[in-house]
Amino acid sequence: MVYKIRDKETGKVYEVTIDEETNEITVYDVKTGKPVKTVNMTIEELKEAGYEVEPV
């Protein structure tokens, strides 16, 4: 599923895909559409880390 996340401190917005089964999150560069990095976190962990998470 695709989400937009926003860093509450910097205001930067990222587009991510989240595999609900493995909790693998792939972060994409919004301008190029290319993957930047992959992390292993849940949506709740993202929120605790200071991100706003919205489904696209």
Rank of each mutant, 00 (worst) to 15 (best):
K31F: 15
P55W: 10
E24V: 14
R6S: 05
T22R: 14
T17R: 14
E24P: 01
Y14P: 00
G11W: 03
L46S: 00
E54T: 09
E9Q: 13
E20R: 12
T42M: 02
K8C: 11
E20H: 11
V53Y: 04
K4F: 14
E48F: 09
P35T: 08
K31G: 11
E21C: 13
E54G: 05
E45Y: 06
V56W: 11
V16H: 00
K47W: 10
E45G: 08
E24R: 13
E15L: 15
R6V: 12
T42D: 04
V30R: 08
K34R: 10
E21D: 11
E48A: 13
E20C: 12
K47C: 09
Y28W: 14
T10H: 02
K37A: 15
E44A: 12
T22L: 11
Y51R: 01
V27Y: 14
E24A: 10
K4R: 15
V30Q: 11
V39G: 04
K4D: 00
E20D: 09
Y14H: 02
V53D: 02
V36A: 05
I25N: 00
E24K: 11
T22K: 15
T26P: 00
D29W: 06
I43R: 04
K31S: 12
D19L: 05
T17N: 05
Y51I: 02
K12F: 10
M41C: 12
Y51K: 01
I5P: 00
E54N: 07
T38N: 06
I43F: 08
V36P: 01
R6Q: 07
Y3E: 00
Y3Q: 03
T38P: 03
V27F: 15
V27C: 15
K4W: 15
I43M: 09
T42Q: 02
V56N: 08
P55D: 08
E21Y: 11
D29R: 01
D19W: 06
P35W: 14
K4C: 14
K12I: 14
Y14A: 01
P55F: 11
K31D: 14
E15T: 15
I43W: 08
N23G: 13
D29T: 02
E52C: 05
Y51G: 01
E24M: 15
M1N: 10
G50S: 03
G33P: 00
T38H: 08
A49W: 11
E9D: 09
I18K: 02
K34V: 09
T42N: 07
G33H: 09
E24W: 13
Y3P: 00
M1W: 11
Y14C: 15
I43N: 01
D29F: 03
V13Y: 09
T42C: 02
E52D: 10
E54S: 09
G11H: 03
T26S: 04
G50I: 05
E20N: 10
K47V: 11
Y51V: 02
L46T: 00
N23I: 04
E15Q: 14
V39N: 03
A49L: 13
G33W: 07
M41S: 06
L46D: 00
I18H: 10
D7M: 04
K12E: 12
E44I: 09
K34D: 08
V36N: 03
V2P: 09
T32A: 04
I25L: 10
D19R: 07
P35S: 07
N40Y: 15
K12L: 13
A49P: 01
N23V: 05
K31P: 09
P55S: 12
V53W: 08
P35H: 10
Y28L: 08
E9I: 14
R6G: 01
G33V: 01
T26M: 06
V36Q: 05
K12R: 12
T42L: 02
V27A: 05
T17W: 13
I5N: 00
R6T: 14
K37F: 15
I18A: 04
I18Q: 04
E21K: 13
L46M: 07
K4N: 05
E52I: 09
E44S: 10
K4L: 15
I25V: 08
K4E: 05
R6C: 09
K31W: 13
Y51A: 02
K4I: 15
V30N: 09
D7V: 04
T22Q: 08
E15R: 12
E48K: 12
G33I: 01
V13Q: 07
V36H: 05
E9V: 14
Y3G: 01
T42V: 01
V16Y: 03
N40G: 06
G11P: 00
V53L: 10
I5Y: 06
I18S: 02
P35V: 14
E48Q: 13
T22H: 12
A49C: 15
P55C: 11
Y3T: 04
R6D: 01
T10L: 02
I18C: 06
I43Y: 04
K31R: 07
V56F: 12
M41V: 07
I43L: 13
T17A: 07
T42P: 02
Y51W: 15
T10V: 00
Y14E: 00
K12A: 13
T10S: 08
T10Y: 02
T38W: 14
R6H: 06
Y51H: 03
D19C: 09
V2C: 14
A49R: 10
M1I: 13
P55M: 12
E15I: 15
K4G: 01
E21S: 13
E9W: 13
E44P: 06
T38Q: 07
A49D: 06
V27S: 03
D29S: 06
M1A: 10
M41L: 08
E9N: 12
K37V: 13
T22F: 06
N40F: 15
V27L: 15
D29N: 06
I5L: 06
V16G: 06
K4Y: 15
V13K: 03
T32E: 06
A49T: 08
V13S: 06
I18W: 15
V13T: 08
E21I: 12
D29E: 06
I5C: 07
V2Q: 12
T26I: 09
V2L: 12
G11Q: 03
D7H: 15
Y3W: 10
A49G: 07
K37G: 13
E15Y: 15
D19P: 00
G33K: 09
E20M: 12
K34A: 10
Y28S: 03
P35L: 13
P55A: 12
M1T: 11
E9P: 01
E9C: 15
V30M: 11
E54Q: 09
V30W: 14
V53K: 02
V13L: 08
V39M: 14
E24S: 14
I43V: 07
Y14N: 01
K47S: 09
G50N: 06
G50M: 05
L46F: 08
G50W: 04
P35M: 11
M41Q: 04
V16E: 00
Y3F: 12
G50T: 03
A49Q: 11
Y14G: 00
I43T: 02
T32Q: 03
V30S: 13
K37W: 15
V30A: 11
Y3L: 09
P55R: 11
D19M: 05
K8T: 08
K37M: 15
V30D: 11
T32R: 02
D19V: 05
T32D: 07
E48I: 10
N23R: 09
K4P: 00
G33T: 02
K34P: 01
V36C: 15
P35D: 03
T42W: 01
T38L: 08
V53C: 07
G11K: 03
N23Y: 05
N23H: 10
Y14F: 09
N40H: 14
V39D: 03
K4A: 05
T42E: 01
T42A: 03
V2F: 15
D29K: 01
T38I: 10
T32G: 04
K12D: 10
K31Q: 14
E45K: 08
D7F: 07
D29L: 03
E45H: 07
D19T: 05
V53T: 03
E48D: 11
V13F: 07
K37H: 12
T26C: 06
E52N: 05
V53E: 03
K12S: 08
K47E: 11
K31Y: 14
E21Q: 11
Y14D: 00
E20A: 13
E48R: 12
D7K: 02
